[in-house]
Write a protein that binds this DNA or RNA. Structure first.
Lengths: 235, 235
DNA sequence: ACCCCTCCTTGAACGCGTTCAACTTGAGCC
DNA sequence: GGCTCAAGTTGAACGCGTTCAAGGAGGGGT
């Protein structure tokens, strides 16, 4: 369950021999440990190389940039997120609860890293960065995350307009990105405002989604979905 | 009209003598010109100093960081935005037109810098950066921008729930930030997808806002506004 | 044994943003 | 003129991410 979503999107990074694969793994493990201990910005490539006992150029032989080193981190966090969300997905069929539960789990999973989430959030915000949640490189973790929201939806008893239902998992993921954006800026103690947002917005969204089948709102929804489809694809 | 919103939020940067003020202005002008010509990331502090005929340390005597140099840029762009929005604000009383017009004007104003907007968008996304649209340092430009949306609302004939009306200018500004976020990621030629988003989402929002007075939606709006008020303030 | 040749590894070097101890400038005062 | 002192100015230096020419390691072919 934790292994299924390896970073396959990024293409072949060199590791042709056993020796190579070993060095690669050593560098990756060292870097991830140091990122978790001291944060992204505070961990220099020189420090990673020193700690791993290799030359700094060697790290760049396996990873195109410091940013790429953290991509694996995404997969780790995603797997943790899934695990943390499992109880609520097994325990309730109420849409609002399931959505709030998955969002809660997501924030909880990221919570230990809030202090330095800031320092790599800025690089994740760069559209050209592989760390961008919209990038091709992070497609693996993104798809896994969207699947998690699809699961939250499918296991619920909520009645949803058929066309909306199709797009909803991705929209829920987008809302999750919004929550993360809020969370990164949230300076309240323990980021309790983020939890307030989740707990109160989830029932609101559930009611809005239920209402999507009402004659007054249906044309609006249709129009919005049509727009969404026009905007989604690249170019 | 263009001068009223000077960067007063940032506090006193040194310029006690006439000579000092002159050097300060020289560095600022040089930097802004080079940013516009070559982009933010491609313009180094050394290059700015060389071009301005001063030492790099001198630039840091007047500006705490490279980021602070671009703050003035925000005010410039904001003033341009206001000017570009003037025609539509004078010409229509339809809310959707006015909102779309102001958003259009905003994107148009930023359009020349799309290529390198990317390179300082990442620093603007950092919550701790003075360049963040939510920062204290950019409060001046932000307030001016919100005022522009208030103007768009006030000059329209739309009927809005009284409580919603109070929050709407800030919500419109927030939507504008969302549009900018989309625009930065928009790789379609001429960013035409961003314009599509504006032109189709504005009437949608107008209809949704009009509906906010309907009995079905009113409780939802009230709940959402209450949540918003809880979330707004720091801490 | 020797030579290839690919894979891997090295560390000095580059340009960046930023810092700081040392220096110069010039107005106000005697 | 000479002194003082804050304001302004300098450029070498630091650590950063990243690059690259140079060289080692080791398996296969002869």
């Amino acid at each position: 369950m934790t292994e299924q979503a390896a970073t396959t999107g990024a293409g072949a990074e060199p590791a042709a021999t056993a020796r190579g694969a070993q060095t690669r793994q050593l560098i990756l493990d060292t870097a991830l440990r140091m990122f978790k201990e001291h944060g992204y910005a505070a961990t220099s490539m020189r420090a990673v190389a020193r700690e791993a006992g290799v030359a700094v150029g060697n790290a760049y032989y396996y990873f195109p940039s410091k940013e790429h080193l953290i991509l694996r981190f995404y997969d780790d966090v995603q797997a943790e997120h899934r695990a943390a969300a499992a109880p609520v997905l097994a325990g309730s069929t109420e849409f609002a609860d399931r959505l709030a539960g998955v969002l809660h789990a997501g924030v909880d999973t990221n919570a230990p890293y809030h202090a330095f989430a800031t320092s790599f959030f800025k690089v994740a915000a760069d559209p050209d960065s592989p760390l961008s949640p919209f990038s091709a490189e992070s497609a693996g973790a993104r798809q896994a995350s969207i699947a998690l929201f699809a699961e939250a939806l499918d296991g619920s008893t909520i009645k949803v307009d058929a066309q909306l239902r199709e797009e909803l998992p991705e929209l829920m993921w987008l809302a999750y990105m919004g929550v993360i954006l809020f969370w990164v800026h949230d300076r309240s103690p323990g980021q309790r405002k983020t939890y307030l947002l989740i707990d109160r917005a989830a029932p609101l969204l559930a009611r809005l989604i239920t209402m999507s089948r009402l004659p007054v709102l249906r044309p609006l929804i249709r129009e919005a979905l049509d727009l969404l489809r026009h905007l989604r694809h690249r170019t």
